[in-house]
Design a protein around this nucleic acid. Structure first.
Lengths: 178, 178
DNA sequence: TCCTCCATGTAACAGGTTACATGATTCC
DNA sequence: GGAATCATGTAACCTGTTACATGGAGGA
């Protein structure tokens, strides 16, 4: 149930329409909590029914601008501070690593190398976002920078780990029978 | 669709029943790809229908021992080596970080501190698994060690990042008006 | 006029969680 | 005999993805 809190969080910064929110999801939250258009509009309806947000104004093309209510803000704060983070994040990459034994050793090594490359690419991409986020000054950007730093560190970790893992597997296979 | 490959992967190491697999999921894969009992039995049925696994033997209490077929093994290898890892892992922790601005500064700092503590606990837990995995020698353990190392590094990262982030927010608030 | 962008909504499906339901075997 | 464990299955519900569907407004 975190999409609902993502929406509350965004609306707590500034009122916005579903369409606006969609853009923000694509820009800022794409790497943290992606959401689709259909999901978003559904959630806006549910949040309105629950009284956590309300329509602040109606615009041209049927545009509805939402804002968070007091109850919504309270719910947001409660969620951040008191609801325990729930799920183990599933990683299909790590799952593949578990089963690398099903591949011939050279392919396993190649796979780990490709992970290192992917991490390097992600790192480059995140680095390209740094200047863009750095010049902004709203709440979302201040904390967005923290999130971005996490991403940078995590990408480096992936690259370093993949290189280390490749070496591990290599050393296992160099001395197969002693 | 990774649960299916998790099942194929486990069965490629050794034949097992749904019940056996459930235990393995709870032990080895709990931190990588958790699965529930009902999901597992459903998937076993679908995999059998698809011809990727088959019933190798039937035991006492209606026990059905499955083994992977040639087609299943081919599918597993294909998935590991050629299917691109799909989704951005959603992180509800990082999502909370994005919206920390909705909290008073002291609560935001407290939250980051609690993240550091959580990371420290996870680290301790993973470290306790090290000796257990180290003495095993099957394929799953060899590659499981790689996955465990990832977990260890990731937990350290989380702790270090949380400490860094706390310092960042602290320094923002020490000098509010200059 | 036509294209692009703004803007919302719904339907079908896949994957995952929780809960319920049932029964056989083994061990004490 | 009773408890713990082995063992499987199903139903309801929630979340998320993909695709379809519709139409207004503004600019070239």
């Amino acid at each position: 149930m975190s999409l609902r809190h993502a929406v509350l969080g965004l609306l707590s910064e500034a009122p916005a329409s579903g369409y606006d929110l969609l853009k923000i999801f694509e820009m800022s939250l794409a790497n943290v909590w992606p959401a689709t258009q259909s999901q978003l509009y559904g959630e806006l309806g549910k949040l309105t029914d629950a009284g956590l947000i309300e329509v602040a104004a109606e615009g041209p093309r049927g545009r509805k601008e939402y804002r968070v209510t007091e109850a919504g803000l309270a719910e947001l704060r409660h969620w951040i501070a008191e609801v325990p983070p729930n799920t183990v994040p599933r990683s299909d990459v790590l799952l593949r690593v578990f089963f690398l034994g099903a591949l011939p050793a050279d392919q396993a090594v190649a796979y780990l190398r490709s992970l290192a490359r992917d991490a390097e690419n992600d790192l480059a991409h995140l680095r390209s976002l740094v200047p863009h986020v750095e010049c902004q000054d709203d709440n979302l950007s201040v904390y967005g920078r923290l999130a971005l730093e996490w991403g940078l560190r995590a990408s480096e970790l992936r690259r370093e780990w993949a290189e280390w893992a490749e070496e591990q597997i290599r050393s296992l296979n160099v001395t197969p029978r002693d």
